[in-house]
């Protein structure tokens, strides 16, 4: 009996000692954890927790949006129309015989799709620009409305953009003769009516097409994230805002060129987007490689 009690006593003693050793070892670890890392390190962790990686896209976005975006947009909407005005005054518009033989260039369906894309895209460009340059328009209700119209027009634009992407996909694929077209700037720098190397669409139209459709889908997605933010990581939103503005600049530049070509540079081409017919002479010169029946 005495032996048994001694055994129990010894076992209990061992158990208690073991627990004490484990606990004290843990405490030692905890105390060691407290003593490592200075207060300066603590504040560094704290700032990191609060501000995240602001030095990444945060700082970049602040610099770009604060100092560059509006200036570049301003240059785009003044310099490009300025160059076109010079072109119009020096070289002038191209005139083709609209009385002669006509060729069906744009069937009704493509015209309808193009019409919706044109109206919604013009709204997108105008409202987008008015937001970029909102400080000069006074902000407030006017620009706020522009912001609402911007998302409304974007929702409308996505559908015709996707339809255009599929219906003109083959015609818009890059060809070797596009390089020649770019080198001679589409023949717009001379008054002579010399056939330029272009199929149904010339290289300029192709560049605008890919920017407006594929680029348009990128714009729609980044814009959707900027609009909603929600649960998206802030750094991603910052990056998307940079992409949205940068890509917007490129698309806007091509949009201005497209408007100038259709309204001023090639007389009557706006008309052919309404009726679908182009003069045979115009097709032979500006789209010399296009095979029509």
């Amino acid at each position: 009996m005495q032996k048994f009690f001694r055994c129990v006593f010894l076992l209990t003693g061992l158990l208690v000692a073991g627990v004490v050793v484990i606990v004290s070892a843990r405490e030692g670890q905890v105390l060691a954890g407290l003593s490592t890392g200075s207060s300066a390190d603590y504040y560094q962790t704290l700032i990191g927790t609060i501000t995240g990686n602001w030095q990444g896209y945060g700082e970049l976005f602040t610099t770009l949006q604060g100092q560059w975006f509006w200036k570049i947009f301003l240059v785009i909407i003044t310099a490009i129309p300025g160059v076109f005005l010079l072109h119009y005054l020096v070289i002038g518009a191209m005139h083709f015989d609209h009385e002669g033989e006509q060729i069906l260039f744009f069937p009704l369906f493509t015209r309808i799709v193009h019409f919706f894309a044109a109206v919604s895209f013009s709204l997108l460009a105008i409202t987008g620009l008015s937001m970029v340059l909102g400080a000069y328009l006074g902000g407030g209700a006017l620009i706020r409305t522009a912001r609402y119209v911007h998302i409304g027009a974007a929702l409308v634009f996505v559908l015709p953009a996707l339809v255009m992407l599929t219906m003109w996909f083959k015609d818009m694929l890059p060809r070797l003769h596009d390089i020649a077209w770019i080198c001679m700037l589409g023949g717009y720098l001379s008054k002579k009516k010399k056939p330029v190397p272009a199929g149904k669409f010339n290289a300029g139209q192709k560049m605008y097409f890919w920017l407006a459709t594929v680029g348009g889908v990128v714009m729609a997605y980044t814009g959707y994230i900027i609009w909603g933010m929600g649960t998206t990581a802030l750094d991603t939103v910052r990056l998307y805002a940079i992409i949205h503005n940068g890509l917007g600049m490129a698309i806007l530049a091509f949009y201005l060129a497209h408007v100038y070509m259709s309204v001023f540079a090639v007389a009557g081409s706006l008309h052919s987007m309404k009726t679908g017919y182009k003069p045979k002479e115009e097709v032979d010169i500006l789209h010399s490689l296009y095979k029509y029946q």
């Binding site: 501000t51 802030l234 805002a241």
Partner: peptide, 17 residues
């Protein structure tokens, strides 16, 4: 608040949320 259009750029620029 009468000039603000709610674009959210300030939130993207602010390090402190």
């Amino acid at each position: 608040k009468k000039t603000c259009i709610g674009c959210g750029y300030c939130f993207m620029a602010c390090p402190f949320g």
